[in-house]
Nucleic acid binder design. Structure first.
Length: 542
DNA sequence: AAAAAAC
């Protein structure tokens, strides 16, 4: 069965009426409005519609269907029952600031440049007016904490390691200084070859950052490349690689281009590793090393960004940086307090599916993002949800074709996916502004994974909800994750906190626990061999 | 510790 057929099938039989969901949305919106009004220390944390990613998404024109329709029904409801004027719900929302968490910030290093309080202050740094104008037209008003500290540091050409929670605007914090320091699109005087490189762990994230670049690039002929096989090949044509300003790439893609001689990095002045701790993982490290070694420009600036940076990765990072400044926003390795988190006991693996179905039997806030531990389990879970009549279920993992992956992201950005089942590939960096709820169907194996996964909600000052299933098998790591919840202001049952510290042996045992390939083995008795990795839907339905 | 992701 094709992916499209999967989509069609998943549209059948809704468990919730549309109006149910709309009502739920309205309640949520009202709550946040009231919160905004009674909170005295509100900052200007609202998200202007111009800032919305949806309109930059491929094929994603305009706003998401669900939001539009809910605002229409709000309109009608008001006229019919309350006789109020017909002000659009989105205008109402825009006039109210969403409360923003005020973070503690630490900036350490020698001669740390002072932070800025407004984007206007960038004038004194010689930031081109075109850039500040683009900021304004894209709806950016006040810098977030990570932006106000990191932008001056990078503008002063310092190396930087920055740790800031999920959804706090790290991308702009490194892109704005790059555009500013490059000053103008590549010209004969700027040397030959690409001048700035951003390296990220997944293609989806690379694409998202590319879209963000396009916002800042408006009005000038910047040459920005989302690195792929095709764009790399295009560079091999006579001298094309010399007129490039910024490349966004995954590590292996870039290394392949280096080895093919398609590109050299001798003129790179700015190198950014986003999701730095992930990039310094053993599997990525050799490639990162090669990329760094290939950047031979004498005044190369390096900057590392992430929401998490375990001690080991931080040591590696600091050794790669030259007289760095270390900026920490909030508490390291801790989720945002805006995300209300809970742990749900589900006994064993077969009990998870019924638990999830009963979760969907109550009103919920779409879109929901669900994390599974493997590609086949993600596919299989998506199928089970479809077969159980959940509407607009989607699946995304790296076993799909490039096109299938891109289409899934587009549907998500357009609001067509109400339930997205995915793997670790979506855990980091992806900014789906509408995601209200994250469900960890399979228990995350590290604190970093937990923090990044649930960080797909509660972005840019919005509220979010995260539910994590755990079974008896997950016990060895339960306390570790429970402490993360506690640290960020969520509550945890007493008995979990009283658990003994897991022993090394127990942890080793947990590593050996093998979850079934599919979430409902009963459905696949005797047919397990037929499971193919590269398929959005199990062949049993084909 | 293991899966996923990277080509």
């Amino acid at each position: 069965m094709s992916n499209e057929a999967f989509r069609l099938l998943s549209r059948g039989g809704t468990v919730f009426s549309k109006s149910n969901i709309d009502n739920h949305l309205l309640i949520k919106r009202k709550e946040s409005r009231q919160k905004g009004q009674r909170n005295a220390t509100v900052l200007d944390g609202q998200i202007p519609s111009e800032l919305d990613f949806f309109k930059y998404a491929q094929g994603g024109q305009g706003k998401r269907k669900i939001v539009d329709e809910s605002s229409n029904s709000e309109k009608k409801r008001k006229v019919n029952h309350e006789g109020e004027d017909m002000q659009d719900e989105d205008e109402l929302l825009a006039s109210v600031a969403i409360p923003e968490v005020i973070h503690r910030v630490s900036a350490k290093g020698s001669d740390v440049p002072p932070h800025i309080d407004s984007f206007e202050a960038l004038n004194t740094f010689g930031v081109p007016s075109r850039i500040t104008a683009n900021l304004k037209s894209s709806g950016y008003k006040t810098p977030t904490s990570v932006q106000s500290y990191c932008i001056p540091i990078l503008l002063k050409s310092r190396d930087l390691a920055a740790i800031s929670p999920t959804g706090t605007g790290k991308t702009l914090a490194y892109l704005l200084p790059i555009f500013s320091k490059l000053a103008a699109p590549a010209s004969p005087s700027s040397g030959n070859g690409v001048r700035a490189v951003v390296v990220v762990p997944t293609r989806e994230l690379a694409h998202q950052i590319y879209n963000e670049c396009l916002k800042l690039a408006q009005g000038r002929k910047w040459k920005i490349i989302l690195f792929s096989k095709a764009t790399a090949n295009a560079l091999s044509q006579n001298g094309a690689a010399d007129k490039v300003d910024i490349i966004i790439s995954t590590p292996l893609r870039l290394v392949a281009a280096l080895q093919n001689g398609v590109i050299d990095l001798n003129n790179v002045r700015h190198l950014v590793l986003d999701e730095a701790d992930r990039m310094l993982d053993p599997e990525f490290m050799p490639q990162i090393q090669e990329i760094v070694n290939s950047c031979t420009y004498s005044f190369l600036q390096k900057a590392f960004f992430s929401a998490t940076l375990p001690a080991g990765a931080e040591k590696l990072a600091m050794e790669m940086l030259n007289n760095p400044v270390r900026v920490v926003v909030g508490v390291k390795d801790t989720p945002l307090p805006l995300i209300s988190q809970s742990l749900t006991y589900v006994a064993d693996d077969p009990s998870k599916l019924p638990s999830l179905l009963s979760y969907f039997a109550k009103p919920y806030n779409p879109p929901v993002l669900i994390f599974a531990s493997t590609q086949t389990r993600a596919t299989s879970l998506a199928e089970e949800l479809v077969l159980n009549g959940i509407a607009n279920v989607d699946c995304l993992h790296a076993g799909l074709t490039q096109k299938e992956r891109e289409d899934a992201v587009t549907r998500m950005r357009k609001g067509e996916s109400w339930v997205m089942v995915t793997t670790e590939v979506m855990a980091r960096g992806m900014d789906f502004k509408g995601v209200r709820e994250v469900i960890n169907y399979d228990f995350p194996t590290t604190v970093q994974s937990y923090v990044h996964r649930i960080g797909r909600t509660g972005r840019a000052g919005r509220e979010g909800k995260a539910v994590t299933f755990f079974t008896d098998d997950d016990a060895p790591y339960l306390k570790t994750i429970a402490n993360v919840l506690l640290q960020s202001g969520s509550t945890v049952p007493d008995w979990i906190l009283k658990l003994p510290k897991p022993s090394k042996l127990k942890k080793r045992q947990m590593g050996k626990i093998k979850r079934p390939d599919v979430v409902n083995p009963a459905r696949f008795v005797g047919r397990r061999d037929s499971i193919k990795k590269r398929s959005a839907l199990h062949p049993i339905y084909a």
